[in-house]
Structure formats: structure tokens, C-alpha cells
Design a protein around this nucleic acid. Structure first.
Lengths: 204, 204
DNA sequence: CTCCTCATATGATCATCATCATATGATCAC
DNA sequence: GTGATCATATGATGATGATCATATGAGGAG
């Protein structure tokens, strides 16, 4: 009975895909199981044939969204780290959360989530930062990874606040200010802590 | 009948104060009206004598929390902008969200909140950034305000991700990496956009 | 052709929660 | 002291939503 099983797997995949979009746009808690299934032309009942709980789905959806966003950023960063910043902190990214980075939408909910959810989030983030680090300037791989963590979390915050704000002019200023800051920072690699080393590498 | 009215005003104040703490620790949606009143030794019924809705309370509580945190940061920044960064991105701040900055906890919920809530948030944030800007290095007031926006949103993101993560070592790395990044940035003022001006001022 | 299996649907159930309607009981005016 | 007033309490109500129990119906096996 391969046909049936394939169909089920395909449904499962579609649920994750849809959840990955919905969660980024609305957050985990605001997306109901029934609503999610409804968007796929299904009903709520079948959900638990695929996932043990809503949180289990959330964990998979977050990982999927992070991986997708990571690919997107890696592609953008082929033009250099400045391009990466510009893509992340763009108005397009701010205004299309369902296609973008899941961090701003889900991080606050992960804080209060189950152990399982937090672990899935952590591992996905680790991979995200590690891959991004390869695109950053600097010689020391450890320092590049620190930079990646600071950059990701920092840009995530700017995007989040920019989305929360009422006034579009202020929202734009937040984005452009953050872009300027990170452009500066990436122009020279960051040493660990406050120890200032001899700066060396510059662009990719 | 002043005694009665004073009592009611005092109760109202206590509700806001308690909400400001609870919201920072758990987010708006996770804090129920009944639970909140219960923590004050009251019951849920009287709530609507003080506030027209839960969101109205949230708007006031967020503004109160932002103002409180602003005072705290201003005090810390008397030792210079680096101290401000160190206080915000400290483990203590990460581990005591109910006493700290409301941005990481509430921003994601504000994004999907009512117009009223978003507006209250925006105005409070504007004041927060403006006051902080006074403590930042640089000659141009406009540029200092840009820096304040980038700094606030960026640090908020680092704190948020640090709280979400499972692994305390990784959480600490996020904080220290962000500290290093912002120390660097504040060592020289940021120009607007990517236009590079002649850097001038340095520390406080 | 008939039965079985499994993916999905239908229809509870149970909990949580914001909100409102009404009751109570203390404080204040007279 | 006695009645009015208002802050707070008690007790619905209605909505939402996760989860589960059971039904259905289309494949595939014999």
C-alpha cells in the first residue's frame, strides 16, 4: 500500500509547509489547528493522525522555516555581507513575514514553550548561525560565529520592532538605522568580548 | 467621598503595576484577567470597573513598563554608553524579565494587537528612544536618535533570542557577542544610511 | 466481489477566558 | 442611625480552541 502512504506523507508535508507560513505571519498561538487544516481543504480531525500535538507541529514548522530562510540569506550573501543585511532589513522582508525569518515571530513564544519546542528551536538556530558565519568577514572562525549570533539576533530585533510600530516613517527609520549600524560593524570583524584585536580581513 | 475614590485609584495603580510585571514575564496573552486580579487578592469581576478591556490595561502597562525601564537605563548610562549596553545585555536582565525591558516580551503581540495598543506602544517607544539618544555619543542629534533606535531594537533582539534558547552556554554567547558588537559601534557615532562621514566624538 | 485498513471527517468534550449582570457590603451624607 | 453610592465579589454566558472517539469511505488484498 504505497500509494496511500505517499498521500499521507504528502499531506503531512503540506501541513508543515502551511504551518511554517502561518506561524511566521501570526505566531504559534494565533494559528488554530482547525484553521490551519481548513486552509488546506482538510478538517481538524485528521490532524492528530500526523502530529502528536500542536507543539510538535510547531517544532517542525519552525525548523523548516529557519532552514528555508537560511538558504535565502545564503543566496543573498553571495554579493557580500552588506547585501545580507540589506535583504534582511528590507521593507519587503518586514512586510512579508510569512516568507521571511521565523525568529521575530516565534522567539517570544518559544521562551514559554515546552522543552521539546525550545530544543528544536535551539538546534535550528545553531545551524542557522553556523552556516551564516561562513559568509561573514574575519579570519577566526569562532569570532565569525559570534558575529553571526549578534547579527542574527540584532537584525531580528530591528525587524520585530519595525513591525510593531504604528508609524511607517518610524518603522523605516528603525530599519535604516539598523542597516547602517550593521554595515559599519561588518566592515571590520568583531573580536570576542571587549578585547580589541588588530583588525585584518575586510570584505568576503 | 475622597477616601473611596483614592482607594479605587490605588487599586487601579496596583493593577497596572502588577500587569506591567506579569506582561513582561509572560506576555500579554498568557496573563489572564482573573489570574492577574487574583495575585492582588482581588477577583476578576471588579476589573471592568477600572479598565474598558484587557487591551486597554495592556496599553497602560506597556507604557508604564517602558517608562520604568527607561529610567533604569538612563541611570545606568551615567557611566557611559558602554555601561548601558552591559546592563541591558546582562545575564541578570535576561533572567529577570519581569523587572526589565518590555520590548522583547510584548513587541510580537503588539504586531497583531489593536490599533489602540499599537499606538500606545509606538508613542512609548518614541519617548524611550529619544531620551536614550541623549546619552549616546555623537554630535548630530538626529544621528544619535538613529543610533538609539538601532541600539534599542538590536539589543532587544539579542535579549529575546538569548531567552528563547535552550542551552545556557549558547545564550551567554549571544549576549556577549551582542555586547561586543555594540561596544564597537558606540565607540564611534553612526552616520545615517551608508553614507560615511568624518567620525568625530568618541566616548561620553 | 468482498473485506480490511487506513486517511480523513464528524461530532463531542473539556478547559480557558474575556466580558457582563447582578449581588453585597462598606463608607459617607444627612 | 439610615439610606445612598460605589468598589468589589459572585456567578453566568458565550466564544474559542485543543484533543479525542467514532464514523465514513476509498484504496488495496484475497
Amino acid at each position: 500500500m504505497p500509494a496511500k502512504r505517499e498521500r499521507a506523507q504528502e499531506t503531512r508535508r503540506r501541513i508543515i509547509e502551511q504551518a511554517a507560513r502561518a506561524i511566521r505571519a501570526e505566531g504559534i498561538e494565533r494559528v488554530g489547528v482547525g484553521e490551519l487544516m481548513g486552509r488546506l481543504g482538510l478538517t481538524h480531525g485528521g490532524f492528530y493522525a500526523h502530529f502528536s500535538s500542536k507543539e510538535a507541529l510547531a517544532a517542525e514548522a519552525i525548523a523548516a522555516a529557519l532552514a528555508e530562510q537560511c538558504e535565502h540569506l545564503l543566496a543573498a550573501s553571495e554579493a557580500g555581507p552588506a547585501a545580507l543585511v540589506d535583504v534582511y532589513l528590507s521593507r519587503a522582508h518586514r512586510d512579508q513575514p510569512e516568507q521571511g525569518c521565523p525568529l521575530p515571530a516565534v522567539a517570544p513564544e518559544v521562551v514559554h514553550g515546552s522543552e521539546q519546542l525550545r530544543h528544536a528551536f535551539t538546534e535550528a538556530l545553531r545551524g542557522y548561525a553556523a552556516r551564516l558565519a561562513g559568509r561573514l568577514p574575519g579570519e577566526d572562525p569562532a569570532a565569525r560565529e559570534e558575529t553571526a549570533l549578534a547579527l542574527l539576533s540584532g537584525m531580528c530585533g530591528a525587524l520585530l520592532i519595525s513591525r510593531a510600530v504604528d508609524d511607517s516613517a518610524l518603522a523605516d527609520r528603525i530599519l535604516s538605522a539598523a542597516r547602517a549600524a550593521w554595515h559599519r560593524l561588518l566592515a571590520q570583524p568583531i573580536g570576542v568580548q571587549s578585547s580589541t584585536r588588530t583588525p585584518s580581513g575586510s570584505e568576503t
